[in-house]
Structure formats: C-alpha cells, structure tokens
C-alpha cells in the first residue's frame, strides 16, 4: 500500500524528468505505459500513464513547410493542438491564442502527442512485447526501427527518431525515445531500476 501511495502522477513525472534530464545520453522523451486489465473481457492493456517530452535539436530549427503536403500536415497538427489546448483550458475561447498553438509542431512533438491516444492490447507493439516477455527491448538505429515488428516503431522512424527503448518496470513499461542513435547502456538500465523500483519504499 505504501508503494502504491508513492506511485502517483507527481512522483512518476519526477522520475521521468530525473531520468531524462540526468542522463548522459540525449533522450527526446520518456513515457510510462501503465498496465491494466479490463474486468469484463479479461484483456490486458497498456495505456498512457504519464510522459515527459524534453525535445531535440529539431525543435531549435525553425523549418517552414516548403511544399503543399508538408504545409497541409502542419495545418492539421496545429488544428489538433488548438483543440487539445481548448480541451485542457476549459473549452473553446477559454484561452487566448498564443505561440504555444500557432508555432510549428515538430515531428517528435507530434509523435509524443499521438502516443497519448495509443494503447497496446495483450502484448502488442514494442511496449506490449517488452511487458509480456518481461524483458527490455532496445532498438538503436533507423534501419532497425524500420524492421521492428511494430507499427509504432516504424512511425517513430518516419518522424525522425532513431532509438527506442522499452523496459518493463513495476506495473508497466518505461519507453524512451531519441533522435540520436544510442546504444544499450548498463548505467542507464541500472538507473531505471533504481528510479522505477516500485517495491521500494523510498522516494528517489
């Protein structure tokens, strides 16, 4: 019960932030996928628990969409961003439009936002596979992401990510993504174990 009490949104966000901001490598985001079981169907599900988006070099480059398809994609992303902003600020017109929703939405920002809508049923997708096998899955390199048996990994590659890592921790899966190629690191795996050891009664 004590461990459960510590496992709340605030400490989870703090753990994600500590991991990403304190890492030697440059990670773009971290997501915790929370496991649950649908009582009626018995289906095991991994859904959004929390996430931390740090960003990457892409965010610093102000690329203006130069072709019609890219411009249309940006329009679509900004429209979705406006709707989401409206949702969390209490309805349309609840907040004044600002650069938060009017500036370009980068590929990795978009990937992170789309992730909030995703879930993985009965061991599907990279997070589901890691959870089901109770083993980490570390994919480094765009070519390896392209070959991964997972639609999410392929989408990640298309949106500029080069490394995806899924590590089963406690009641879910920790996923890390980067636009850099990052090879497996024992140091990071140990850090994850310490930060996400939900059996521990100590707040990291």
């Amino acid at each position: 019960p004590l461990a459960a009490a510590y496992f709340n949104q605030e400490t989870l966000q703090q753990r994600l932030l500590t991991l990403i901001e304190g890492a030697r490598e440059t990670w773009t985001y971290a997501i915790f996928w929370q496991s649950s079981v649908d009582v009626a169907s018995g289906v095991s599900l991994l859904g959004w628990g929390d996430g931390y988006y740090k960003g990457c070099e892409e965010d610093k480059r102000k690329q203006k969409a130069t072709n019609p398809a890219a411009a249309a994609e940006q329009d679509h992303r900004k429209r979705v961003l406006r709707e989401l902003n409206s949702l969390i600020s209490g309805g349309a017109g609840g907040s004044s439009p600002d650069e938060t929703v009017e500036e370009e939405v980068t590929d990795t920002e978009w990937f992170f936002l789309v992730s909030m809508t995703q879930s993985f049923v009965n061991g599907s997708g990279l997070p589901g596979q890691a959870f089901f096998a109770d083993a980490p899955n570390w994919i480094a390199g765009a070519d390896r992401l392209a070959l991964a048996p997972c639609e999410r990994a392929r989408q990640a590659r298309e949106l500029g990510l080069q490394t995806m890592v899924c590590v089963p921790v406690g009641t879910g899966v920790l996923e890390l993504g980067s636009t850099d190629v990052i090879h497996q690191s024992l140091e990071l795996m140990n850090k994850i174990r310490v930060l996400f050891n939900f059996n521990s009664f100590e707040i990291p």
Binding site: D50, D59, K60, L87, G90, E99, E103, M116
Partner: peptide
C-alpha cells in the same frame, strides 16, 4: 473535456507549459 482522463490531461498541461518555455527560449527577443 470530462471524457479526457486525468493522466492525459495533466500530461497535456505539462506538454503545453514546456512547449511555451521552449518557444520563449528560442524567440529572438
């Protein structure tokens, strides 16, 4: 709005806050 689960709502709020910080840091002035 009521249908948006709390975990996603809080994550979205944080995402927008951080995005604003990033954009402010990148602004020329």
């Amino acid at each position: 709005n009521e249908d948006l689960p709390m975990a996603r709502k809080k994550s979205l709020q944080r995402f927008f806050e951080k995005r604003k910080e990033r954009l402010t840091a990148l602004a020329p002035y």
